[in-house]
Design a binder for these strands. Structure first.
Lengths: 149, 149
DNA sequence: ATAAAACTTAAAGTTCACTTTAAGTCAAGG
DNA sequence: CCTTGACTTAAAGTGAACTTTAAGTTTTAT
């Protein structure tokens, strides 16, 4: 059995956060030994899922629904399914945004403009600066133009 | 030229947030007509990028660095490049978590267990319940087990 | 010309997800 | 047995990202 400090060390989640999760219902009330929490190592898997969901943009109350938002003892309740479906679509949208953002970063990293001043005339929807027309794709993204400094 | 209300409508970002962004430097100080903000439609592209970066998990001050965190007039400063490199790696990590999370949701949505009680004995690292052994992959993910209700 | 709708600011308030603090209790090692 | 370090709680504090409020000004439509 692990103390809260052990779990904190092994999961990378501070003890204060673990107590907070317990209070919010994200973690089950831990067994106690003389008032102190004792965890089975299983808890680490649950914490992993909580962290994963957080990275994916779930709020605490959403993770709660995800984990225990059903009362029936039949498989995934309608409520759960609805939430999961909705969330799945949100995740897909978020992935698209993530990829777009990576492309913006990559464009910036590959940029070969010699000065910002070269880069502030044309705004195109894909975010590149296409003034001269020669190697437009490798110019600064216009978002970074001097106009806004 | 667009009023702040127009921009709010067209971008989906509340006027109060737009004012906040201006105060924080995310948006350039807008031109004024009798004290009221007037925007060129170009601003919508910038707002799109801000939203994109937010979806991707950038904080406001990070977006600030992204947009104007360089002083030189040579292409992407070292500072910018460092930040972009770091962020790119974070984005990749986040994508992996997103995919994992989708898989957890999908497993839940595909689950065919007849009751939660069927699903609370085995914990495996991939998060599936594999008691009987027949169609293990389609059981409730163990995260959702009764143990924690 | 005037009334309604939309805008302005500064400052205070809100929500989320924790963290910190204070005062005290427990447990593990020597 | 005793000290030290880890733990306990409740409550207050924090930082991020806005939103709301209040009091006033400007624009727009009739």
């Amino acid at each position: 059995m692990l103390s809260i400090g052990d779990v904190a060390d092994q999961s990378g989640v501070p003890a204060s956060a673990l107590r907070y999760y317990e209070k919010e219902g994200l973690l089950p009330p831990a067994e106690r030994k003389g008032g102190q929490r004792r965890y089975s190592p299983d808890i680490l898997f649950r914490i992993r899922v909580i962290k994963m969901a957080q990275q994916a943009g779930f709020q605490v109350n959403e993770i709660l629904t995800l984990l225990e938002g059903f009362d029936s003892n039949v498989p995934p309740s309608e409520r759960w399914r609805e939430m999961a479906q909705k969330k799945r679509m949100e995740l897909e949208e978020k992935q698209r945004e993530l990829v777009l953002m990576q492309e913006v970063l990559d464009r910036g990293l590959r940029c070969t403009c010699l000065s910002w001043d070269e880069c502030f005339l044309n705004v195109s929807l894909d975010g590149t600066c296409d003034r001269g027309g020669e190697k437009g794709a490798d110019r600064h993204p216009v978002v970074f133009s001097r106009r806004y400094r």
